[in-house]
Computed example of a mutant assay.
Amino acid sequence: MTSSDPAGTPAGWPPLRAELRGLEPYGAPQLDVPVQLNVNENPYGPSAACVADIATAVARAAVTLNRYPDREFTELRAALAGYLSRDTPHGIVPGQVWAANGSNEVMLQLLQAFGGPGRVALSFAPTYSMYPEYARDTMTEWVQGHRESDFALDLDHARDLIKERQPSVVLLPSPNNPTGTALPPEAVTVLCEAAAENEQTGIVVVDEAYGEFRRSGTPSALELLPQHRNLVVSRTMSKAFALAGARLGYLAAAPEICDAIRVVRLPYHLSAVTQAVALAALRHAPELLGKVDELRAERDATVAWLRDQGLSVAESDANFALFGTFADRHAVWQGLLDRGVLIREVGPDGWLRVSIGTTEEMTAFKQALTEVREEGQG
């Protein structure tokens, strides 16, 4: 006889997969505080001109909402290819582009297509905390190597681990989240060549969610696409484009990889409204990206200030900085929150991550951190 609660519901209800029971859903704290620097958002919203263009585009799309959208999002793929072509001398064509509802869905679709039972996904810690969840959700075995003390990749270790575990998917953010570390081109080449030696020729995904914030002289992995048929480079409009609320991520890869993803994507997965918003934003790309230089400068100033305070800071090519170390990082995090500043308690023990905000927001962060440290917290 099955035990049940007082309402008559059987124990173990609902019938969730065993490996998911007791788990909490992913998500950074959503708290209403004056200074929110915890999820790497762009602090500068779209201009009035961009907002007006988006509104007009959505109004046009609304007239056709009784019809399904273009499931191949042809116009958007062409626009994204044009935008990505700026970062590589080789150019990108629409057949090399795929998009979905945020880079999260892009990654999930990659694992649906190339992962699965009996296959391995691999990365190197510390890295983006959602990667193992994509693997879990697609029943792909998750394998995690390690990074060096400065958060760079140990290429010998990486090559050996790929050879040993034969992953079908290697996930590598560049800049890395939460450390901000960028991958040099030679590292991408080593890993693509190692994965290509696998029996099933594993794919290497270089996640450039923060790619537009990279420092001058740091190339995009897009330049390596002609050399490696197993290379995938993903991007998002959430960060540099200040469109976190629009949910549009995309990738560039060999057309055969894009075609494979089409097998697992849900029908009409990009709504007509999403496509309209993304196209309007791309029309305003120079303006939206105009704040990137300001954020880079603010990042570099923040890194320098943190180091002047005697703290360790990871080299960052992103719009955030990982800093530490603290004996009790949670006490520091809480002390900042008590002063109206929300940052992220993430990464290796003792470290904290702060997103780069406006000059005023970073001033508030510095003042709050100074007060917390003067009180001896952490």
Rank of each mutant, 00 (worst) to 15 (best):
T9S: 06
A11G: 11
P14I: 12
L16W: 08
G27T: 15
G27N: 07
V39P: 02
V39F: 03
E41H: 05
P43W: 00
A57M: 10
N66C: 09
L80T: 01
G82D: 14
D87M: 15
V93T: 14
P94V: 04
V97I: 15
P117A: 13
A135T: 10
D137S: 13
E141I: 11
G145V: 05
D154W: 06
L171S: 09
P173T: 05
N176Y: 01
N176H: 02
L183Y: 01
P185N: 11
P185M: 11
P185H: 14
T189L: 09
A196W: 07
N198R: 15
T201I: 11
G202W: 03
V204P: 08
V205T: 06
R214V: 09
E223N: 13
L225C: 04
R229F: 06
V232L: 11
R235Q: 11
P255K: 08
V263I: 10
V263P: 03
A272C: 03
A301W: 02
V303D: 01
Q309F: 00
Q309N: 06
S312Y: 08
D317A: 09
L322C: 15
F323P: 05
D328M: 10
H330I: 07
G335H: 02
E345F: 07
G347H: 04
D349M: 11
S355L: 07
L369C: 07
E371W: 00
G378N: 13
